[in-house]
Design a protein around this nucleic acid. Structure first.
Lengths: 218, 218
DNA sequence: CCGGCATATGAGTAGACCTCATGTTAAGCG
DNA sequence: CGCTTAACATGAGGTCTACTCATATGCCGG
């Protein structure tokens, strides 16, 4: 299971007080993202609101990107956990239902979880042990990187719950599907604060049509 | 036809020398993007390489984003012009061929045009007269905004050349298709410097499958 | 009570974006 | 041609942000 401290923190908080401080900083980061966006977010303000000196901020987070990455991973975990639970419990007879469920759950969290609407999966996140890859924009690289994590866990779900045929074809298809869905959902939330319903529908259609080649026929 | 000076420049260069200066700044911007990426690009360095004082830079470009936006629009124009030419001249009997052609042309330009590989359509570009929309990341907003422009021109092409049924359904479908394709192609170029061939194939499949509902059956 | 080690702190550094007062050139006009 | 006026060009410097590091503070075994 992914974890906030996996490659994003400079030092793992040991004492109870430190853990709470890191948690508070992440919470304030989420709220600030909703208020002023990534560009407007400053590490100083995050620290101030969390009641933490700036030096302590940098004890735990390597930089601004690391902070947002940590938040995104926390949100990502929450999303995948909830999705796993719902896929396991509900009566999913059809993989197309699973697609709808995943999209709906994602949309629901975008609406309700602070910081999720803006950051969601990727947007930020430089890869943890990434090659220095000059000539790139870290924001977008990160988005891609993160969707690979989602695809990984979705693959596990897909194989376990739906009995899909394992293999590189499926892996690639899932990554492509997540990437495409992510892009369309971003568009949906750009068009409408709660996500344009038509675009959400189109997102489901897009994914279902594409996956029809890679998954057993209902 | 879109134009670099459409909403991206602070003042349109009138004299011949000024036009050349703006052109040189855009060229250097492209080269620098390939070398150091968006995060590493500085307005100072662009100006220095173009042999232009920093003050003059800001006479023409409102800010760093404006510079990159102008470059992206220039590239976008080039892409759409070439696509229009190829769609008009070639023997396109089938809209699925048109999809392949568009993707191939895009990939070809990503490989060869400086600054295209990194910036391509969007990535940067805040909308020209955009609402101030707090709480967002300007980079990603811009990418979306720009793909709408692409979709607009693709729609014109689609209707004129392929006789597709006009309407909001098609508009939305094209925007979704461009958004999704853009995302998958970014992934393809992240995975491989010249674009992972498998992912490029998947991109075509994704778009074709999705559009099958919206365009007349070959 | 105390030495030594881990942790906490915030003034300070480096550097980026962008401005604006000043200098320079061109244009309009009698 | 000289004068007035406006447009354009310039780069030192203001402001702000990410991030550091020397110092202060607390913690703990002896």
């Amino acid at each position: 299971m992914t974890n906030v401290s996996a490659g994003t923190l400079r030092r793992r908080p040991a004492q109870r007080r430190s853990v709470e401080r890191v948690e508070r900083m992440l919470d304030e980061c989420a709220r600030l993202l909703d208020e002023v966006g990534y560009d407007g977010l400053t590490t100083k303000e995050v620290a101030r609101r969390a009641g933490v000196p700036i030096g302590t901020f940098y004890q735990f987070f390597p930089d601004k990107q690391g902070l947002v990455r940590a938040l995104a991973l926390r949100n990502l975990d929450a999303f995948l956990d909830r999705l796993t639970a719902r896929l396991g419990s509900a009566e999913i007879t059809d993989w197309t239902d699973a697609v709808d469920l995943a999209v709906d759950e994602f949309v629901a969290m975008k609406r309700t979880i602070p910081g999720f609407a803006i950051v969601d999966f990727g947007e930020i996140l430089p890869s943890p042990g990434a090659p220095p890859l000059k000539g790139t924009n870290r924001l977008l690289d990160a988005a891609l990187e993160n969707n690979v994590i989602v695809a990984d866990r979705l693959r596990a779900l897909t194989i376990d719950l739906l009995g899909a045929p394992r293999g590189p074809g499926l892996d690639r298809a899932l990554i492509v599907a997540v990437e495409a869905a992510d892009a369309v959902l971003k568009l949906a939330f750009r068009a409408h604060p709660d996500g344009d319903p038509d675009l959400i529908t189109e997102c489901k259609k897009l994914v279902r049509r594409y996956l029809a080649d890679h998954l057993p026929e209902r």
